[in-house]
């Protein structure tokens, strides 16, 4: 199962980065339409899909890839 980051929903609050036990996430330099710096993968290989980022995210940014094909 591949995790997709819905960048347009992200507000760069950093909670997922703070709580990811593997430090797999980082605040990227990309900005979304609203001008927020969005979260990105720091080291995707470390991610074991524990779901803590999903739990802590106030914007439902982390979803399953297959649920959100463009």
């Amino acid at each position: 199962m591949k995790i997709k980051i819905l960048e347009e929903r992200c507000k760069g609050c950093g909670l997922c980065i703070e709580f990811c036990p593997k430090r797999a996430l980082v605040l990227s330099d990309r900005r979304n339409l609203l001008g927020y710096k969005v979260v990105g993968w720091n080291s995707p290989e470390k991610c074991n899909q524990c779901g803590i980022c999903y739990l802590m995210c106030p914007e439902v940014v982390f979803v399953r890839e297959e649920d959100f094909e463009e």
């Binding site: 929903r9 507000k11 609050c13 106030p58």
Partner: peptide
């Protein structure tokens, strides 16, 4: 949950 993005401030727990 509708697909609209939340208007809440970054880090506000309403979204959760």
């Amino acid at each position: 949950l509708k697909r609209n993005t939340f208007h809440y401030c970054p880090g506000c727990h309403h979204g959760i």
